[in-house]
Structures are given as structure tokens and as C-alpha cells.
Design a protein around this nucleic acid. Structure first.
Length: 528
DNA sequence: ACAGGGTTGGTGGA
DNA sequence: TCCACCAACCCTGT
């Protein structure tokens, strides 16, 4: 090792990865450093209520507060700065005589562009730049390389690629109890000006309306709590949860912590493996808890390596579908005015708490797009992106393409009913009564289909359908049949696909009947 | 060309 | 709780 001649002044730039555990960028930043400047920059680009909802912002601020006290406990601090990082960072690295800039790699479009520019500027100023992969289990490029240079488009393909890579790196070691100090005489580091603001101070009119709390401390406690029920972990299968459970959700609700990096995916992975190793039998991907973590990874890989991933146009993996540009339908869906209590309650839960069960997300996504309203998935994606605390753009866009049968999933004739799940899991209607209090006095018999209630019942419940609560915006049976037909048409008209004068089953039917003497299938017997 | 599979559909019947 | 059926998709691998 050559002797250190220049004092090392490092900036550790937090963006996601709001944690001290499994933080290789932190370890890189403190290596041989005399001074460490942990920084978070509030970028006005996303600090707008119509881009980031108040509940997600609040979660972020919680996380910063927690991170700040963890750093303070180690003799450091978190400096919360404001402005465009491309202006803020060059200013402070000059003020602080910075020699090294460290941050966690981020594969999202906005971040890639931002980080590319900042890296170039830093290098020009003679600053060493180190960026580490710790938001995902693997470097997405490695997964792509193992899949022949393309992003895998099926889970199976993805599984194959990561199997070839072997298990992910274990979490990085914990940072030392004492971190290098912040330079005392440096400009712009006084605690008053670099504290964590409130949502009001950032111009948000309302306080948060959710119980979901952010921060590494909270994340680790939640991880420990969720994984303490080992039988539950071992038995977990995603499609089997109760989407109407809202007091105690049917899933871990670790997703917001993974989104902001309060929880390391590699720590989660390791903790899951530990539980599985103690159990004789346990569920497996894709439905297991580990499977859920791998789905996250899958979408990160595809998002990072697909041009125009976040829109339909110019997106090579996305079906080109002429969705209706129906603003009224979209608004009604977003504002819980479809007249279907199941759909409207889910959207109310989204706006109020910033979280809904996975299957509930499926139901409203299907309803907005291919199931009923035939509105573009991009609109729904934007709504989720705004309100979901765990709104993570790679996953969110991927799931919307999935649910709208635009990519990954193509069985567009499997349509979710806007009644079934509510009736099945919550026959009493507790869920809908909680989130749509206007319906709280409806008898259970009509709670999922209030328009079927006789007028007398509506009056007694103090809620007239069509006046106090909307009548159904569409007839689901009619709308879904029509949507399926339109999807079929759209699929037939994909660019590069030959025109099909006769549908395949019809052609098959004709062909078999006329040409060979093979026994008719059951279906043939029935249809003839 | 074709079979098999695809994280999570709904309905109706045994 | 487990079928078959509805109408029938795409992608992957052979």
C-alpha cells in the first residue's frame, strides 16, 4: 500500500439505499478518508404533489430522519441539501475540497442520465467516482450477459440466467461504530440548514394519511418480525393471500423499504435462505417470498435494458394497442367513482394509505385497461406511481404492462371480476365499509353490488345509488366481452404480424374435420 | 409445425 | 376442494 499523501475527503451521496447496513458505497467512501460528507439532495424535479404523493414523500423524510440519527450516533451526520444535484454537488465538492464521490448505482432512466453527467463533471474536477451495486441482488448487466446479451422476458429465462450467475453476493459488512467526521470549518454544513424538512416545508398542503413508517430501523424491525413466523414464511404463496386484509396485511409490506433501500435486497435474500434452511419444506419461486424478491430483480433487469420501457410507443416488448383516450373513465377510476365498491375501495385505500394488496392492484389495473374501461396502462401507471409508497418505476411499469396484457402476459381473456374477490374474502364488506364510508350502512347482501339493492334498502342505508354513490360506470359483463374482442383485434394487428383472415381455432377445426380421420376431440363433439 | 407452460380468472358442477 | 369448460393468447424449446 502506498502511503496516503493527500487527505481523502469523501462525499457519500445517498439517493436510494437509505441505510447503513449492506452499503458498499459507504465502505468505499470511508476507506482511508479523513473526512466524510454524507449527503442527500432533495431534487425539486420530483418534489411535486402530482409526481410524488404526500405519503411516499413522508416515508422518504422518515427514512432520512432515521438515517440522520444513525449517522449522528456514529459521530457523523446527514446533510440534507436542496436543489438540482447537477448544480449542488459541484458547488459543495469545491467548498469541501472533495477527492472522492461515492454512491449506489441506479439503473433508472432519470438517474442514469443524471449520474452520467455528474460522474463526468467530477472526473473533470479530478474527483474519484465510485458507484456500487447494492439496490439489486445482481448487476443487471451480468444477468443480461448470461441471457445472451438480451434481457430475459420470461421468469423462467430469468431464473436460468441467475442460476448461471450463482447466488448473489452476501451483504457487505456493517460500517464501523465511528465514522470519519464532517469537516468542521466547511461551508454549508451547519445543522440548522441541513436538517430534514417536513412535508409542509416542502410545499405540500396536507400531512401524510398513512401508518406506514419509513427508515432503516423500521425496516430491520419489520424484517425480523415478519420472518419470525417461520412456518408462515415457509408456506407463503403469493396468490393465496387475502387482498381485503387491511388491519394486518397478508404480505410483508417490506416493499416500501426495498424501494427506498431502507432494507437491502441481499440482506432479505440471506434472511429468507436462513429460514428456508431450517424448514424441511417450503414454497418456491415464483410464488414464494424469495420468488417475490426475484420478480423485483426481473423487472429491474428488463427495465434497465429495454428502450422506451416506460411507454407503449417505441417499446419493443410492448403490444401496440389503440387504447381509448377516455378522460372521464380515467378520472372516475382514479377518484373511486366507478360504482363498483371493490374497485373504488381499493383506489381509496391507495390514496389514503399508499398501499394495497397485490391482487387488489391486479383488479384495479385490469379494470382500467383490458378488463373494462380500455384506458391506457400508462395512465394507471402514473396514478400508482404518484400514490404508492412502494411505487418503484421499473416494477410498476412492468406490472402494468403485465396486467394490461401488453407484455409478459398475454391471456387477455382472463379478466378479473370487480365482484369476486370482495365477495370471496370479505362477505361482510368490512373492507369496503372502511374505505368507502358512504356505504357503511348497506347490508352485506348488497355491499359489493349496491345498485341491486331495492330503493327502500338504499334509503335506509342513507345512500341512493346514482346520487350519493355512482351507478356502475359500465356493465362489467358487456364491457369485458367487448374489451376481449378489441384485444383480439389489437393482437391481430401488431406490426410484423401477418393478417389472419380466419381465426386459428376455426382453421384448426376446419382442417381436422376435412383432412384427417383422427378422432374428434371432446371440444369438437360438443361444438358439433 | 407443434406441444407445453405460463406467479394469482370466472363459472358451474360434483 | 377439485375438476372441466369458456375461448384461445404468446413464448420457448424441440
Amino acid at each position: 500500500m502506498p502511503p496516503v499523501v493527500v487527505p481523502q475527503h469523501s462525499i457519500l451521496w445517498f439517493r436510494k439505499g437509505l441505510r447503513l447496513h449492506d452499503n458498499p458505497s459507504l465502505l468505499a467512501a470511508i476507506k482511508g478518508a479523513t473526512h466524510l460528507y454524507p449527503v442527500f439532495i432533495l431534487d425539486p424535479w420530483f418534489l411535486k404533489p402530482d409526481v410524488v404523493g404526500v405519503n411516499r414523500l413522508n416515508f422518504l423524510l422518515d427514512s432520512l430522519t432515521d438515517l440522520r440519527s444513525s449517522l449522528q450516533a456514529r459521530g457523523s451526520n446527514l446533510l440534507v441539501l436542496r436543489g438540482n444535484p447537477q448544480e449542488v454537488l459541484p458547488r459543495v465538492w469545491k467548498d469541501w475540497n472533495i477527492t472522492r464521490l461515492c454512491f449506489e448505482a441506479d439503473t433508472e432512466d432519470y438517474a442514469k442520465e443524471r449520474d452520467g453527467k455528474i460522474t463526468a463533471a467530477a472526473k473533470e474536477s479530478g474527483i474519484e467516482v465510485i458507484s456500487c451495486v447494492s439496490h439489486t441482488l445482481y448487476n443487471t448487466r451480468d444477468v443480461v450477459a448470461k441471457n445472451g446479451g438480451k434481457a430475459p422476458l420470461t421468469y423462467k429465462g430469468f431464473e436460468k440466467a441467475i442460476a448461471a450467475l450463482g447466488p448473489p453476493e452476501p451483504p457487505a459488512e456493517d460500517p464501523p461504530a465511528k465514522l470519519p467526521p464532517i469537516g468542521a470549518d466547511s461551508k454549508g454544513t451547519d445543522s440548522e440548514k441541513t436538517g430534514v424538512p417536513s412535508v409542509r416545508e416542502l410545499g405540500y398542503p396536507d400531512e401524510a394519511s398513512t401508518d406506514i413508517k419509513g427508515g432503516e430501523t423500521e425496516a430491520l424491525a419489520r424484517l425480523a418480525e415478519q420472518l419470525s413466523d417461520k412456518a408462515w414464511v415457509a408456506a407463503f404463496e403469493k396468490p393465496k393471500g387475502d387482498p381485503t386484509a387491511f388491519i394486518k396485511p397478508a404480505t410483508t409490506v417490506l416493499s416500501p423499504h426495498l424501494k427506498f433501500g431502507c432494507l437491502s435486497p441481499r440482506l432479505f435474500y440471506e434472511a429468507l435462505q436462513r429460514v428456508y434452511s431450517e424448514k424441511k419444506e417450503h414454497s418456491k419461486p415464483p410464488v414464494s417470498l424469495l420468488g417475490q424478491l426475484l420478480w423485483r430483480e426481473f423487472y429491474y433487469v428488463v427495465a434497465a435494458h429495454t428502450p422506451n420501457y416506460h411507454r407503449m410507443e417505441g417499446n419493443p416488448i410492448c403490444k401496440q394497442i389503440p387504447w381509448d383516450d377516455n378522460e372521464d373513465f380515467y378520472r372516475a377510476w382514479e377518484e373511486s367513482r366507478t360504482g363498483y365498491p371493490w374497485i373504488d375501495a381499493i383506489m381509496a385505500q391507495l390514496r389514503r394509505t399508499g398501499w394495497m394488496h397485490h391482487l387488489a392492484r391486479h383488479c384495479v389495473a385490469c379494470f382500467l385497461t383490458r378488463g373494462d374501461l380500455y384506458v391506457s396502462w400508462e395512465r394507471g401507471r402514473d396514478t400508482f406511481d404518484r400514490w404508492l409508497i412502494d411505487g418503484d418505476s421499473s416494477l410498476n411499469t412492468g406490472n402494468w404492462m403485465w396486467l394490461s396484457a401488453s407484455s409478459f402476459f398475454y391471456q387477455y381473456f382472463r379478466v378479473y371480476s370487480p365482484l369476486t374477490y370482495g365477495k370471496k374474502y370479505d362477505p361482510e364488506g368490512k373492507y369496503v365499509k372502511h374505505f368507502l364510508p358512504i356505504l357503511k350502512d348497506y347490508p352485506a347482501k348488497y355491499i359489493w353490488e349496491p345498485w341491486k339493492a331495492p330503493l327502500k334498502v338504499q334509503e335506509d342505508a342513507g345512500c341512493i345509488i346514482g346520487k350519493d354513490y355512482p351507478a356502475p360506470i359500465v356493465d362489467h359483463d358487456e364491457a369485458s366481452k367487448r374489451c376481449i374482442q378489441r384485444m383480439k383485434q389489437a393482437y391481430d394487428c401488431q406490426p410484423g404480424k401477418a393478417a389472419q383472415p380466419v381465426s386459428k381455432p376455426a382453421a384448426k377445426r376446419l382442417g381436422r374435420n376435412m383432412q384427417d380421420g383422427s378422432p374428434m376431440s371432446k371440444r369438437m363433439k360438443r361444438s358439433n
